[in-house]
Amino acid sequence: MLEIKAVKKTFFPGTVNEKAALCGVDLTLEDGDFVTVIGGNGAGKSTLLNVVSGTLTADSGSVVLDGVDITRMPEYKRAKYLGRVFQDPMMGTAPSMLIEENLALAARRGKHRGLRWGISGGERERYREMLRQLDLGLEDRMTARVGLLSGGQRQALTLLMASLQQPKLLLLDEHTAALDPRTAEKVLALSDKIVAEHNLTTMMVTHNMKDAIAHGNRLIMMNAGRIVLDIRGEEKSKLTVPQLLEMFNRVSGSDDVTDKMLLA
C-alpha cells in the first residue's frame, strides 16, 4: 500500500540552522491500516506527513503509494490519491466559498475540471444527505460561506471532503489539536466512523497519547527524525499511557516528555 523507504529530509542544509528532520525513515502500511503517529516536538511527525502529501519533497529515499512512485510528484497531482485534514481548521476549506461549493471542489479531486457547471443538482442532494449524517445542522446551511462555521464544523466538513473521492490514503495532521476537548472528541469519533465506513488506510499524527492508543490498529513513535517504536494489533490494544510514556523515555534516552504530550 504505502511504502516509505530510507526517506531523509534536512531543512536549511549548509547553514547554521541546519536541521535534520527525517534521518532515514522506513515505513510500510498495509491496506486498511490505521496508524497513529506520536512523538515530541520536532520529532519529524509532521515532516513525514508532508513528505507523503507533497507539501515537502524528500531529499532522498522513496515514497510509493499503491505501486505509484510519488516521491517527486507535485502536490496537486498526488492529491488525487490523498485525503487530508490539517491542524489549522482554516487550512482545509475555502472560507469565501459556500459549503456546497467546497464539497463540489473536493468531489472533483483528481478529475479534469472543465467548463461544466461547478455543482450539479444531483450532487446537492447527495451532499445534503452526507451533511445530515454529520448531525451538525449543516444540511440546512449549504449555501452559507464556510468562513462562518466554527473550527469543529470546519474540521468535520474537511473530513467529509477528504473522503468524498475515496482516497488511497487519509492523512490527519493533528487535526483535533486546535479544538476544545469536547469538539475534538466529536471530530475524532467522526474520523473513526469515516475511516471504518470507507475502509481507509490512515495516518493520524497526534500529540495526545490517549488518542493515539484509543484509535487505529497500529502506533508508531518518532524521535529525532526516526521511527523508534512500532506497536500493532493485540499489543497495541493492551497499551496504557504510563506504559507508552515509559517506552518513550527508554527509547529517547531522556525524560524529555513535554507537558503537551501528557495533557493534550
Binding site: T55, Y76, A79, M91, A94, S96, L105, R109, K111, M161
Partner: peptide
C-alpha cells in the same frame, strides 16, 4: 476562486 481563497486547500484538492 479556490486558488485565490486558499491555495493550500486548492492544491490538496488536486488543483
Amino acid at each position: 476562486r479556490a486558488t485565490g481563497a486558499n491555495a493550500k486547500m486548492a492544491r490538496s484538492q488536486g488543483i
